[in-house]
């Protein structure tokens, strides 16, 4: 596998099949934690961190525990259990040892357990990567996760910047808040539709 494969994987996951605008994963934090761009960036960083770690861990569990014993059917439960515990552990460690890091990154970690993007990428990797590439699939899975997370960060940051402007603009009562934000997201999605077919 060459570097172009990894570059294509990142580009594809980040822009063309964008996790929010195309696959509809992680909508809850996308709508919730995008009122201020500072918290949006924090959320993006937390998602990137957890998603990359989780892709290593889920790969290990899938190919060293689930496949050898022939129990792939409990993958969902095993993945979410490990991801949730891992997140809780990382949060505790950050809280104990680095207060500034906890303030900027750690407080977003509990939200990860209800962020479907993390589990969605782990589940998608099973059907797309592990079954096709076998043992060499680990790095491809990691780079796909990285691209997905970068795409999430990009979109949530862009969206929060638009929302900050929307706060001060004169919107009809009926459309104030979430409805107009959803239309903004729809327009962003149309823009990203234009990237399809590049690869």
């Amino acid at each position: 596998m060459t570097w172009t494969v990894f570059a294509v994987a990142i580009f594809n996951a980040m822009l063309i099949n964008n996790v929010i605008l195309k696959q509809f994963l992680g909508i809850c934090p996308f709508l919730g934690v995008s009122k201020k761009s500072s918290s949006a960036v924090g959320m993006g960083a937390a998602v990137t961190f957890v998603m990359v770690i989780a892709s290593f861990v889920t790969y290990a569990i899938y190919s060293y525990v689930l496949v050898p014993y022939g129990i792939e059917y409990i993958s969902t439960i095993a993945f979410i259990l490990v991801i949730a515990s891992l997140v809780q552990l990382v949060e505790m460690i950050l809280k104990k040892f680095s207060k500034p890091l906890y303030k900027s990154l750690g407080i977003y970690l509990p939200l990860i357990t209800t962020n479907c993007a993390i589990l969605g990428v782990a589940e998608g990797n099973i059907s797309n990567i592990y079954t096709n590439y076998g043992s060499s699939g680990m790095w491809l899975a990691v780079f796909t996760a990285l691209g997905t997370a970068l795409g999430f960060t990009l979109i949530i940051f862009a969206f929060s910047s638009v929302r900050e402007k929307l706060e001060s603009s004169n919107v009809p009562d009926a459309w104030k808040g979430v409805p107009i934000s959803l239309v903004v997201a729809g327009i962003m999605s149309i823009a990203f539709l234009g990237l399809q077919g590049i690869l």
């Binding site: 509809f24 009809p172 009562d173 009926a174 979430v178 409805p179 239309v183 729809g186 327009i187």
Partner: peptide
């Protein structure tokens, strides 16, 4: 039926609901 339509359709429905409650509050 495509991705942008999903966001916009949900936005329209939420706006309808919000508009109704806004009018009631008014």
């Amino acid at each position: 039926s495509l991705a942008p339509g999903a966001f916009i359709a949900l936005g329209i429905i939420l706006a309808l609901i919000q508009g109704k409650s806004a009018r009631r509050i008014k």
